[in-house]
Design a protein around this nucleic acid. Structure first.
Lengths: 216, 216
DNA sequence: AATTATTTTTAGACTAATCTAAATTTTTTA
DNA sequence: TAAAAAATTTAGATTAGTCTAAAAATAATT
């Protein structure tokens, strides 16, 4: 088995890889709030265990074994988030930290049973896909609201920013997963957007429009 | 906050205290599968944090602060066991190790909501009482089946041995929590006991009778 | 009460994860 | 392409938890 710390490194590398391919020491350090020197030490250890491909100064990628572990942690994280929101009535902005702890519970049996108990959900409360027991999941194609033109519409299906502040703002604006929205106007000075949400209009900034994702 | 290890020491000391009052270094070492030297080191640390009363060579007791933590860990352990059995269909002999991990999840909010979600159960799957949110719980008076005389009866309400082997044996014999039993015969050579359980008779050894607890 | 046996503590060492500061390598830029 | 800047690694320490072996204290027994 791996330590919590090793799991957190693998997860961080996985998430960073999705954007940059190969991941740098500093990227990992920033993402884990630690120092580059600490990262280097851990990279050596993970390389020894053949969970990452690492050559000095060249950045890292996950090996298949490392990716498998990363995905299993993400599966646990997202299933627990779903549980917290759907069964224990947590709000979607309150679950992250608790799920960060729960994701390290090792029992595969537990996670698979939890999955069944909840009816095998496909997406977590933030719209992120939940890997199945074998690690497979859909990478759905989402795009930011800011990519829509006037009169185009879509269904809110994810967020690019998971911070409580952003999630609380969306909640207040009723911009939650599953809602249908339509762009009625785009301000071409500040790129802010006016949306038709159900029966009322909502004005959001460019930044919010960039971080709110929709499926067409 | 405290580390997992500290929590495990406090829990062990709590359980051992119930029987012996003051707890010795060797008792703790045996209970945690560690060495006496390691225990001494940890006792110093816990004493520094004022979670235990410790004087060299004299054994330890928990301070009120230490006891509060121990009980909160036990609350979590038992609630998770209840969850695993009642919601996720684990068997009562399968839950201990998973609960040993889950009990260290720190969020009090999580535990209290879990408690409510399950309808605030009073006993865990092995019949042990679940402390409430403030740490209070009934210490019910149980006695072993071996203390019953012929023709006396009672309701199975707890076990003194929590090992999977014992629990599986009880399951097989249908000697599970809530069942009513009556002693029909006691063999005065080996002290084995013949029980009436529902509509059939079951023969159990003295050892089993010692570890099976009933409420009158 | 003296000696033996047991228990407990201390001393010193090891691993995992972290850090700061210095050294090295890579990248950028003039 | 050489010098400066940025990124990364190494060296050497630190903390938490553990261990073995030896020393010290307590308990048991003759």
């Amino acid at each position: 088995m791996n330590t919590f710390t090793e799991e957190n490194y693998l997860k961080a590398i996985y998430h960073l890889s999705l954007q940059s391919g190969s991941v740098s020491t500093n990227q990992i350090a920033a993402s884990l709030n630690t120092k580059a020197a600490s990262v280097t030490d851990m990279l050596k250890k993970l390389a020894d265990k053949e969970l990452i491909n690492y050559t000095k100064y060249q950045g890292v990628t996950l090996t298949p074994a490392g990716e498998k572990i990363a995905i299993s942690i993400i599966r646990k994280h997202r299933l627990w988030e779903y549980f917290l929101v759907e069964k224990l009535n947590f709000k979607w902005d309150e679950v992250h930290d608790v799920a960060e702890e729960l994701e390290h519970i090792s029992s595969k049996e537990l996670v698979d049973r939890l999955d069944d108990f909840m009816g095998n959900p496909k997406y977590d409360p933030h719209g992120d896909p939940i890997p199945d027991s074998s690690g497979k999941f859909k990478t759905h194609e989402l795009k930011p609201v800011s990519a829509l033109l006037v009169n185009e519409s879509g269904i809110i299906s994810g967020v690019r920013d998971h911070t409580p502040a952003f999630l609380q703002y969306l909640e207040k604006m009723q911009l939650t997963i599953g809602r249908k929205i339509k762009v009625t106007e785009i301000n071409n000075y500040d790129h802010s957007v006016i949306l038709q949400v159900e029966d009322k209009k909502t004005h959001i900034s460019r930044e919010v429009a960039n971080n709110l994702l929709i499926a067409l």
